[in-house]
Amino acid sequence: MNLKEKYAELLANIGFDEKAIEKNWFDLEKAYSKKSRYYHNLTHINDMIECFEMYFDKLQFPNEVLYSIFYHDYIYVSSKKDNELKSAEFAVKILPKSSNINQKLVFDMICATQLHQHNEVEDINWLIDFDLKILARGWSEYQIYFEQIRKEYRIYPDFLYKPGRAKALKHFLEYDSIFQTDVFRKLYEKKARTNIEREVLFLT
């Protein structure tokens, strides 16, 4: 099942009609396919959905998690700090009144992808980990990732970008753990820390 089919199936399950599904897919594809998006694009969404499918049986609220995956970066402007909030507001706003999805949970899930901090709702922790799995890729793939992020912030010269990026990365290293679920900690924590430490050195 491709991304559009997965999206259409989800939206049908949570109360969208066929016309709304078609329109919303067009809008979503357009948003994630902007030329300014080198990393926060449909490839990133697809990677997260692969994680979602792998750990589906761990989730209590799979529809909310999947819907949040599709919309968590819907609005993404590198110079803004409220992308997650705006994305959450938009995701909730377009839900049909008859939708059977938990709107507050969707809102909280998408907002949680800003700070990536531990949450008492375990499904939010899974979503955060799906979003951050890129940090534990092999070094060559990780390097492509941080080069894509740099392109998204290309409006900033190196003397502004490098300290800002290093500061954000060091925040992750200060956390007791980068990943929020026991499964991801065991599998990916060490590799993610190694990659981040290496990128910080690259920036300084």
Score class of each variant (00 low, 15 high):
Met1Asn: 08
Lys4Pro: 00
Tyr7Glu: 01
Ala8Arg: 03
Leu10Arg: 04
Ala12Gly: 05
Asn13Val: 02
Phe16His: 03
Phe16Tyr: 09
Phe16Ile: 06
Glu18Val: 04
Lys19Phe: 05
Ala20Pro: 02
Trp25Ile: 07
Phe26Asp: 12
Phe26Glu: 11
Lys30Pro: 04
Tyr32Met: 13
Tyr32Leu: 15
Ser33Cys: 08
Lys34Gly: 13
Lys34Glu: 15
Lys35Ile: 13
Tyr39Cys: 03
Asn41Asp: 15
Asn41Phe: 10
Leu42Tyr: 10
Leu42Ser: 06
Met48Ala: 10
Phe52Ser: 03
Phe52Asp: 00
Glu53Pro: 00
Glu53Phe: 12
Met54Thr: 15
Met54Val: 12
Phe56Met: 06
Lys58Ser: 04
Lys58Cys: 01
Leu59Gln: 04
Leu59Thr: 13
Phe61Leu: 00
Pro62Cys: 06
Pro62Ile: 02
Glu64Met: 01
Val65Gly: 04
Tyr67Met: 02
Tyr71Gln: 00
His72Cys: 09
Ile75Trp: 09
Tyr76Ser: 06
Tyr76Gln: 09
Val77Ser: 09
Ser79Phe: 12
Lys81His: 09
Lys81Thr: 14
Asp82Phe: 02
Asn83Gly: 13
Asn83Pro: 06
Glu84Asp: 12
Glu89Trp: 01
Val92Leu: 05
Val92Trp: 00
Lys93Trp: 14
Leu95Ala: 03
Asn100Gly: 02
Ile101Asn: 00
Gln103Pro: 01
Gln103Asp: 04
Val106Pro: 03
Gln114Ala: 12
Gln114Cys: 06
His116Asn: 04
Gln117Lys: 14
His118Lys: 13
Glu120Gln: 14
Val121Asp: 05
Glu122Trp: 08
Glu122His: 09
Asp123His: 10
Ile124Val: 10
Trp126Arg: 06
Phe130His: 07
Lys133Phe: 11
Ile134Leu: 13
Leu135His: 14
Ala136Tyr: 09
Arg137Gln: 06
Gly138His: 15
Ser140Asn: 14
Ile144Glu: 03
Phe146Pro: 02
Phe146Arg: 11
Gln148Leu: 08
Arg150Ala: 08
Glu152Tyr: 13
Tyr153Lys: 15
Tyr153Phe: 15
Tyr156Val: 02
Pro157Met: 10
Asp158Cys: 08
Lys162Trp: 01
Lys162Leu: 01
Pro163Tyr: 05
Gly164Ile: 03
Ala168Val: 03
Leu169Pro: 07
Lys170Ala: 08
Phe172Leu: 15
Phe172Gln: 04
Asp176Tyr: 14
Ser177Glu: 05
Phe179Thr: 01
Gln180Cys: 14
Gln180Glu: 05
Asp182Asn: 12
Arg185Gln: 15
Arg185Cys: 10
Lys186Met: 09
Lys186His: 11
Leu187Trp: 11
Glu189Phe: 10
Lys191Ser: 09
Thr194Met: 12
Asn195Ser: 12
Asn195Lys: 15
Glu199Tyr: 12
Val200Glu: 02
Leu201Tyr: 11
Phe202Ser: 11
Leu203Gly: 11
